[in-house]
Simulated scan of single mutants.
Amino acid sequence: MHLTAIVAHPDDADIFCGGTLAKHADRGDDVTIIYMTRGEYGGFDTTEAQLAATREDEAEAAAETLGAETVFLDFEDGRITYSMENRLQLVDVLREYRPSIVLTHFRDDMHPDHRTTSRLVSDAYYMCSLPLLETESKPWEPQNVYYFGKPTSSFTPETYIDISDYQSTKEEAIIKHESQVEWLKEHGGIDAEFDGLIEDVRAEARVLGRTRGVEFAEGFVPLHKTATEFLGSV
C-alpha cells in the first residue's frame, strides 16, 4: 500500500495524522507527505524565504521520524487558490505518486489554505483516472480519500485509527517543528485549540481513543464509505 498525505503546511500532517502515517510506515507501507506550501507566513521576525527554509528542514526531520518521504510543491502560503490550472497540477501529482489512499484536510476549516487544498485534492481525485485527460503522467485511481479536521470545525470522524503505540512517535515528529511550537503558543486567538500544541494534540487523541476503547486514536471522514485492510475502523 502507498499512503499519501497532501497537506497545506509543513506541520499539518504530523498534527492531524502523524500517528496513522507512522503506523503504516512501521508495517512496511510506502508513506509520502506532499506539502502544498512551505508555511512561509507562519512565524516571527524573519523573511519569508528564511522561514520557508527553516520549515522545510523541520518538515524533513519530522517526516523522517514518522518514516515518510517528502515532496514540496510550490504553492504560496496563505495564497493557495482554486483554479483549473491548480486542479490539473494536483491531478498530475496523484498520477505521478500513485497513492492507494490519500489523506487531506476536511472541507470545513478556518484556514483558507486548508479549505482550498481539500477542494483541489477532492476534485483532482475525481479527475485523475480519466483516460482522455492528458497530463505528464498516466491515469491513476486511488482507492479512497480520507479527511482529517480540527475539533473546532464541523468535522465529525467516522473512521478511527488506533495510534496508541504511535502517539509518542507523533509527538516526537511534532516537536521537530520548533518554529511552529513557539508560533502557535503566541498565536492564540486564531489557533486557540493548539496554544499548548503537544498537550492539546495528546488530549484530542485521548478523547478520540476513549470513544473506541483505546488509549489514543486519530479520526477521519472517508470520501467513499468503505474501509481498507489497515486504514479502517477500530
Score class of each variant (00 low, 15 high):
Q143P: 00
E178L: 13
E56F: 01
T37M: 04
D29E: 07
G209H: 03
Y126M: 04
D109M: 12
I198V: 15
D92A: 15
G209T: 04
A61L: 06
Y41M: 07
V7H: 04
G43L: 02
Y126A: 11
S154G: 14
A63C: 09
L120I: 06
A22P: 01
Y146W: 07
G18I: 02
R27W: 06
L66Q: 09
L94S: 11
S179L: 13
E193K: 08
D108F: 08
D45W: 05
R27M: 13
D29V: 04
M1N: 08
E56H: 01
A25I: 03
Y147K: 05
T228G: 13
R27T: 13
Q50Y: 01
A61R: 09
R87P: 02
D109N: 12
K138A: 13
K176Y: 09
P131T: 13
D14L: 04
Y125H: 11
L94F: 08
L132I: 03
E229R: 15
A59P: 05
A52Y: 01
H187Q: 14
T81G: 07
L66T: 06
L132S: 02
G189R: 15
A22H: 03
T46R: 02
A205I: 10
G219M: 03
V181T: 14
D57L: 12
A53F: 04
H111F: 08
A59L: 06
S168K: 15
T54F: 00
T169V: 15
D109T: 01
S164E: 09
I190C: 00
R55P: 01
I80H: 03
T65V: 15
E40D: 11
K150F: 03
P139V: 05
A49L: 06
T81Q: 15
E171F: 06
R79L: 15
Y147I: 00
S118T: 05
Y126D: 03
R79K: 13
P99A: 08
S129R: 10
Q167K: 14
D165G: 10
P131R: 07
D74L: 05
A217W: 00
L90G: 10
T169H: 12
A25G: 05
A173Y: 01
D74Y: 00
D195W: 00
A8G: 05
E193A: 10
H111W: 09
H177A: 10
R107D: 06
S83T: 13
D92H: 07
D29T: 02
D195Y: 02
V145Q: 01
S164I: 09
H2P: 00
E58T: 03
P151M: 11
A25M: 11
F72G: 01
I34T: 00
A53K: 11
G209M: 03
H111D: 06
T104N: 08
E85S: 14
A203Q: 08
G232S: 14
F75P: 02
D191K: 14
K138M: 08
N86P: 10
E204Y: 12
E85P: 13
I6Q: 01
I80D: 01
E215H: 10
D74A: 04
R119A: 14
S137H: 15
G189P: 12
D162T: 14
Y125W: 10
E96T: 08
R87M: 12
R210N: 07
H24F: 10
R210D: 07
V93P: 11
V181C: 14
H224P: 01
E136S: 14
H177P: 07
S153K: 12
F148V: 04
A124M: 07
E158M: 11
A217T: 04
E199G: 11
E171H: 09
I190T: 14
L208V: 07
E218I: 05
E96G: 04
D113W: 00
Y166V: 11
